[in-house]
C-alpha cells in the first residue's frame, strides 16, 4: 500500500499561469509523470479521449479535477502529480472553473487506496481546495498534500 510520501514527489508539483484549452491542461498536468517515467505519453491521449467519450467525469467538484485513465492506457508506475492553474480552465462550457488538477496514475483498482482516502478527506472540505488553489508556491502545495493529518 503506497502512502502519500511515496505517491507524490515534490518535482511533480507545479504552479502554471494558464492554458489555452482543457486538452492543454491535461497535457501540462500529466507531463511531469511522462518526463519521469511513471506513465507513457499515450496516457495523456487516454485521458483526453475518455473525457471526449464519457464527459469530464474526473471533475469531481468545483475547482478540482482528478485526472486519470485506466492502468492499461499507459501507466508504468503508480504516482500522483499536482498542477495548480492561476487562470482556471473549464472542461465543459457551462463550467465549473477548475484550478487544481490532480493527476492519478494507478496500476490497479486498489493499490492507491491509502492516498485516495487522504484525498477524499482533504477534498471533502471546499476550503482545502481553495487553499491549494491559492498557495503562493509549489512548495506550499506539496506541503499541503504531504503534511500529517491532524
Amino acid at each position: 500500500m503506497a502512502g502519500m510520501a511515496e505517491m507524490l514527489k515534490r518535482e511533480n508539483v507545479q504552479i502554471v499561469e494558464g492554458v489555452d484549452s482543457w486538452e492543454e491542461s491535461v497535457r501540462v498536468a500529466v507531463q511531469p509523470l511522462v518526463d519521469q517515467g511513471y506513465v507513457e505519453a499515450r496516457y495523456i491521449d487516454g485521458i483526453i479521449s475518455n473525457a471526449k467519450e464519457f464527459g469530464p467525469y474526473f471533475v469531481i467538484c468545483p475547482d478540482l479535477a482528478l485526472l486519470h485513465a485506466r492502468p492499461d492506457q499507459g501507466v508504468l508506475k503508480r504516482q500522483l502529480a499536482v498542477t495548480v492553474l492561476r487562470r482556471p480552465v473549464r472542461f465543459k462550457e457551462e463550467g465549473p472553473d477548475v484550478r487544481v488538477l490532480v493527476t492519478l496514475a494507478a496500476t490497479d483498482a486498489d493499490g492507491h487506496i491509502e492516498v485516495m482516502r487522504r484525498l477524499a478527506t482533504m477534498f471533502c472540505d471546499p476550503d482545502n481546495i481553495t487553499k491549494i488553489a491559492e498557495a503562493n508556491t509549489a512548495d506550499e502545495v506539496y506541503a499541503f498534500f504531504t503534511a500529517p493529518i491532524e
Partner: peptide
C-alpha cells in the same frame, strides 16, 4: 462506477 473504475468511483466507495 466511473469511467475508469479507480478514481472517483473509489472515492465514492469510501464515502
Amino acid at each position: 462506477a466511473c469511467g475508469s473504475g479507480l478514481g472517483s468511483s473509489l472515492m465514492v466507495e469510501m464515502n
